[in-house]
Amino acid sequence: MAAKNLTTPLADDVVRDLRAGDAVLISGVIYQARDAAHKRLVALIEAGEELPFELKGAVVYYMGPSPAKPGNVIGSAGPTTSGRMDAYAPLLMRHGLKGMIGKGLRTQEVKDAMREHTAVYFAATGGAGALLAKSIVGNQVIAYPELGAEAVARLEVKDFPAIVVNDCHGGDLYAEGRKRYAKTV
């Protein structure tokens, strides 16, 4: 299927153009952060302190890689379940976060925040960590190295494949896709 090419950081008009069900190829810089890192990022925002990366227009990838083999940029690098980041995501969107990459359902609060702050939620294919690692061409830990696989890293990606699940207009592929293919048997 034809995919839209996206380059980070994401501007509002680019996000508005995306619809649930669109396939995208993301290039540029995205930031790796899981729950432990999110907890710290939110604490920094609440304390009025500076974040380890610019949140305006940023795309965050909910992922903690396996260790990189010598000579490889990163280990296997597929998405983790997004629900664990739901408590933190609305605050990050209020401060400029535009895109989230993960897998699985989001809460209504997160979906409402996406509409309010013009943000988008992408799903990467869970369990395709070896494939997804191929589109990560740069990897630098920029915060919390003590968290190991849960550290924040600046990832350079080239044509990283994802699907728009929740757009900023209320579109929801998890709901619509299921409805479209459900049949009575």
Partner: peptide, 29 residues
Amino acid sequence: SPVGKEVLGQLVENADIAAADRVPICQDT
């Protein structure tokens, strides 16, 4: 579903890469 087909294709390709490169299928080991 075209999206479904795409995802399944990625999973097959993922298994090929993991086996050929000797890396984990998934980072969640």
